[in-house]
Amino acid sequence: MTKESLAQVPDLSVDLCKITLKNPVIAASGTCGFGLELMHFYHPSVLGGFSTKGLTLYPRPGNHGIRLHETRAGLMNSIGLQNPGTEVFVKEILPKIRGLTNCLIANVGGSDFDDYIEAVEMVSAADVDMIELNISCPNVKCGGMAFGIRTQDAAAIVKAVRPACKKPLMVKLSPNAHDLVEVALAVQDEGADCLSLVNTFSALAIDVYTRKPVFNNVTAGLSGPAIKPIALRMTRDVAKAVQIPVVGMGGIETGIDAIEFIMAGATAVQVGTAGMVQPDILPKIIDEMAQFMASQGISNLKEIQGII
């Protein structure tokens, strides 16, 4: 490669809480397992990073009944945080996946303050790069979203967890918050290092023949392209209001979608549902971002971040 062509290669790297990601595309929690499944299609090191399946202090079997329901341009899920617990993660899983990425984000949830604190303490003391605090899972009782709806609850859980967290703390926000910007500001004030948004939208599907909700929990979380315009607007609202970095997500399917989130103020993005539609889509999204930047003469994402 000549010097001239090197100069034209756009720089996709971004800094997120003092970690340099080679590009801003992160695999979203709950859609990539613990990263190992991705290896059939690409090496996870090509990504900016990945966020693990949501971990809780104790193992959880997850929800019974139907866990998935497809909608127009969307997917509803009610998995219920099925996971092996933080101890198994730290002792058995982490050693196998540590080498897969230089930004290994451990997503941690809980059902009460003590659970959250103990889980964050254990996982953040292990060799992970960042904690993503899940205060937005809509599918388990008190399993997170309860803390992400009201501003004072969100502030209280982040305040409680912060001293226990030995790594950068990303807080994953719920689009179901009564006042998302207010939650974001409160979470920032309590010491969050960055924010990720949005988790799934609380949604309902009804089986009219059985006259019952499709999901045992009645509601489930909606993701996919259907939520993208709302997630984009929320990303911009929050990014405008806070001083800490924002990781945007919600319905991203293409590099152009990802660029929209950057223009809306996101430092990085997460991709979830699209990776389940096509397992090798994340590297394609990264390529498309690079192509777009090259075609538009953008050498660094900072040039377009938050321009809207």
């Binding site: 709950g30 997850g62 899920n77």
Partner: peptide
């Protein structure tokens, strides 16, 4: 089972 990812990542088909 109903599936989303098909590759063991999403736990939707358990």
């Amino acid at each position: 089972a109903r599936m989303a990812c098909g590759i063991g990542a999403c736990l939707g088909c358990t």
